[in-house]
Nucleic acid binder design. Structure first.
Lengths: 377, 377
DNA sequence: ACATTAAGTTCAGAAAGTGAACAAATCAAC
DNA sequence: GTTGATTTGTTCACTTTCTGAACTTAATGT
């Protein structure tokens, strides 16, 4: 087990990349003397290693970085059928992949994970030994201990202590997390948001997810519901939503809604890129749909910017959904609906989802708990 | 100067109210032994004192609380003309009041504060000695050091280092803060949000302000713009706003907007309570205005709840503005536009603004810096 | 009166951090 | 080249802070 000072050091390196002992001491508010011993201990433990040597005036500084192979993590996505499962190192590199059958039964899930583990770790006893945690991503609300699923419509769950069930079955510490929040953590640890203290992730898929990092920490909200942007009312008296309200963003800008609208308009498009193609051909109904949904998403994101002033918004999306009209309208809608003096001040980055996004996000939850630990103070 | 452990203790007491040494030790993750010395030091320093004795089984526990008279703070509001100025203790109790002429010139403001200080402290050398900070509340954007006003339309400022100017003139540590954020801090330290880790304040006045507390800390946003709810677009293509956009919440639900709308409708109402009266008499236009603005404010607050899931929303408002139609419609609009399963889960509290609200808020900024200190780690 | 219970104190020792002096490794200048 | 300047990183004696265990204190309950 690591001390809180050691954890703080890992957190700093994870957020800033490789640093010299002197820089680390400075950033952590410690003396060089304290840093010296701290670094030695963590190097001996195999968590840190010396990487590059930087030459300047005076004695060159030796950069310290995390040893990605000092700990490994398993990530499971309960968002797809079959459920993907990956083995990842501390840098988010994926070492191995498996899939397991999808199930809604917590105990069955635990059993499936247990059965799949040996396949994932096949022939790598060194890795098996350093397996430090399992992360599970799912659609639904998760408590702040990342242990219980408070509610999940997709899985039909209510207060399911999945983390405990899985960790008891496998003997490995397990954490669960909401899908969008898992992506946010993954981007903070492994992705483009490493050095960012405040940012939000909007995940655009069949549904729309969202998660916030505030002051370098995932913000979960008082009931775990922070980031429920999908059910902001965008169109008063709009279409009925699965949540019970009307005109939620989810009914206008989710992939599901877009597909439904195009079906209602008599278009035979099954993906957004097809719709973009039809729109490029000049079909008015396709253009109308893309306009409406792009503008709605942009408006919701503008609200988010106005409310929270994040340092960045990262939109994860599927192939082809952002190169055309939809993306353009959304961008314009954001710019038009934030304070003019802030327009363009919040970088909007987009990221194509790959097949590993959810399972890697799940693994990042376990990695996050390894690096940062349960209690941040 | 206090150590970081001492500050942590003050923070815990400030957030939870009086606690026994044993409880404090538990909450801070320290041993009873460490707590014993810590408490003795702070009592000797005059910061803590023993209050109630609680009897149970075993030796009774002695509750420790902050000594409100261990430090005093001055708060100045640059939101009113003339500018109110108060002297407050660590509990937010107001010891003395003064007013000073309003000015937009930073140096003149510093001089006015310096001149007014002796009047506030008149005949109380004991308090003068313990004066620990000056807080200034203003309308505009403030940097994260609470030292510089980045921009203020009302004051016509751009990058004004007001805190430094005032502290150099008066010799007392000075901090500035945005008006809504100052109210949020005041509510966290002195008011109804003491034990709340996540909450938002919406201040309803001529303009609409908003501020968020996240994980027990004021969240300022990446450019200091968190909480700019007033310029969320609520009505696409609505009335032009002073910010340059159209249909901002500010153009529909601020007191200024409501007064303007009633003027446009030929009503001679100069306050919201008059408008409520006319509406109660059955005048359609008055009812329409109150409906529209109440619904807009409710929708914006619903967005806030959906995005951030705060533990509470506190609305500060002026006399008469919340007892009638406006308040009712707003409440309904909130309930109708949040996820049905969350409806009613976020307490909406309202608080009548008194004449001291801004100046007390300003003083709370100084108190906050005394209690929590500049760096939270 | 006496056992039980829990709060708070004391004290020796462990743990973590500091400051100052020093060793090490380079650049720059003559 | 040699020398001096410069900066990194280490060592070591010392201080500060915290812990664990034993102890004292002040109540309740029987």
């Amino acid at each position: 087990m690591l001390t809180s000072t050691q954890r703080q050091l890992l957190r700093v390196i994870s957020g800033s990349g490789p640093l010299s002992r002197t820089d680390l001491a400075l950033q952590m508010g410690l003396s060089k003397a304290a840093m010296s011993g701290l670094a030695r201990d963590l190097i001996d433990l195999g968590v840190l290693h010396e990487t590059e040597t930087v030459y300047g005036q005076g004695r060159p500084s030796v950069l310290l970085d995390l040893r990605p192979e000092c700990a490994f993590f398993v990530g499971v996505s309960l968002l797809e059928d079959p459920a993907p499962m990956v083995l990842s190192d501390l840098n988010g590199n994926i070492i191995a992949r498996q899939t397991m059958p999808f199930s809604r039964d917590p105990v069955a899930i635990a059993n499936l994970i247990k059965e799949c583990l040996p396949k994932l770790l096949d022939g790598r006893p060194d890795i098996a030994e350093k397996l430090s945690g399992i992360g599970i991503a799912l659609s639904g609300f998760v408590d702040e201990k990342q242990a219980n699923c408070v509610q999940s419509t997709l899985l039909g769950w209510q207060d399911v202590p999945l983390a405990k069930i899985v960790s008891e079955k496998t003997g490995i510490e397990t954490f669960i997390e909401n899908d969008a929040k898992a992506i946010a953590v993954s981007e903070k640890l492994f992705g483009t948001a490493r050095e960012m203290q405040n940012f939000s992730v909007v995940s655009l898929g069949d549904g729309i997810g969202c998660a916030h990092f505030v002051d370098g920490k995932l913000y979960r909200g008082n009931h775990g519901g922070a980031g429920e942007i999908a059910h902001c009312t965008i169109e008063l008296g709009g279409l009925p939503c699965r949540c019970g309200k009307r005109g939620c963003l989810d009914t206008i800008a989710s992939m599901k809604a877009i597909k439904e609208m195009s079906r209602a308009e008599g278009l035979s498009c099954t993906s957004i890129s097809e719709l973009e193609e039809v729109a490029a051909g000049g079909t008015a109904s396709a253009i109308r749909i893309l306009h409406k949904s792009g503008a709605a998403l942009g408006l919701a994101i503008a609200h988010l910017i106005q409310m929270n002033d994040p340092g960045m918004i990262l939109i994860t999306h599927v192939e082809g959904s952002f190169d055309g009209l939809f993306g353009t309208v959304m961008q314009q809608s954001i710019e038009a609906n934030v304070l003019p003096r802030y327009a363009g001040q919040t970088p909007i980055r987009t990221r194509l989802v790959d097949t590993d996004i959810w399972s890697r996000g799940a693994a990042s939850i376990a990695a996050h708990n390894f690096l940062i630990g349960p209690n941040l103070n």
